[in-house]
Amino acid sequence: MKLSVRTVLWLALYLFMIFAPLIIIFIGPRPAGREFWREFAVALGFIGLSLMGLQFIPTARLPFLCCIFPMDTIYFLHHATSVVSLGFVLAHPLILIFSNPYVAQFFNPATSPWRVLSGVIAAALALLLIGSSVLRKDLKVIYEPWRMTHGILSVITLVLALIHIFKVDYYTAMPLQRLLWIVLPILWLAAIVWARGIKPALMLKKPYELKEVRPERNGSWTLALAPVGHEGLTFKPGQFAWLAVERSPFDIRQHPFSFSSSAERKGWLEFTIKELGDFTRTVKEVKPGARLYVEGPYGTFGPDFHEGPGYVFLAGGVGITPIMSTLRTLADRGDKRPLMLFYGSPNWDDVIYREEIEELEKRLNLKVIHVLEHAHHEWQGEKGFITASVLDYHLPEDRANLQYFMCGPLPMIRAVEPALQKAGVPMSHVHSERYEMA
């Protein structure tokens, strides 16, 4: 897979933004009497702060970024760069102390001047922010309160770090330096204003009404939505959206789900949701007529983003939803390219959309291989899991030319990716999105 020019340009801009504070250092006359380690510590601190400030951007779900990078990659970057930023931030005081132990006396909160104290508290809060995020699941912290605190703490940390810079007043002496230290945080925080203010306000004007709740196999439910007073959003098959069910779009309690309906069907959206967690268990109780808000579409999963002579889909359980949207869309478009679906389910009765998939086999050039974990005695098809031997047996000779889309639980993805590689599929043709956002 080659990176597009647009992707490279965005990455170059991102790198420039990370290191932009270093430019501030060079504005104005060169200060006298500062040794290498002190300057080095300051530069690392600036980069750490810049990296932290830029964290507001990936989680703001900016539409132009979400069409370039897969959402799970964006969140992965958010998590990984947070840890890196903490490393840079903590290196700043540590190097200062090691290079000049005299500095350590400033870290006594009772006697410390505010210019140092603000930096110490900011660093401590950064440690708490990132530590609580990394250990959230282990500490069994509930997602929603954590997320709310996470957002507020992030802003406080950023403000304290800026107070530290302005109070130390070393690289803020020149008016241009001060201006840049104001402009950069405005750029970082603009992402929050967009995500928490402008975007929900725009969504408020575009509500959806729940038209029906349909039971599906394997404890899943399909919600069908129609736009109220607007045309409704358009999406590409394989994409997903955040749903606010009977809640204001300003409410942070929104949940990501793949579209399962055809992208060619205008003014009608469907989401198929399996009862897995606290929220998904309540889906079946929502009554037709309920008000919903849909934020999206997001994601780069699906054939519209990866052109190919034919497609192979690999689904596990409710992971069929984005693939179902793709199959329905391709059928509506009259697509004649060869398609294969490897579909893993617990047993024959739990095959979600079983009947409709049989219908789609007639409308499309589609071959379906069901793989059942607990097959009944008369079952003639594949049993167990989607393994390298199952793939090798069914995949055509020209398998290396096809594009592969996989959606399912994480263990399945981890097992099937190497199986595909073993079966002779180039990994650059394998696309999978893991919906592990938090």
Binding site: M1, L15, G87
Partner: peptide, 30 residues
Amino acid sequence: MMRQYAMRLIAAIIALGIILSALVAQLQAR
């Protein structure tokens, strides 16, 4: 696949961060 690029990007950020900081410090210090 994108994750591999993401890992490389993170490695680049760490390496560039340290190198550029050292460079800036070298130029500024006296």
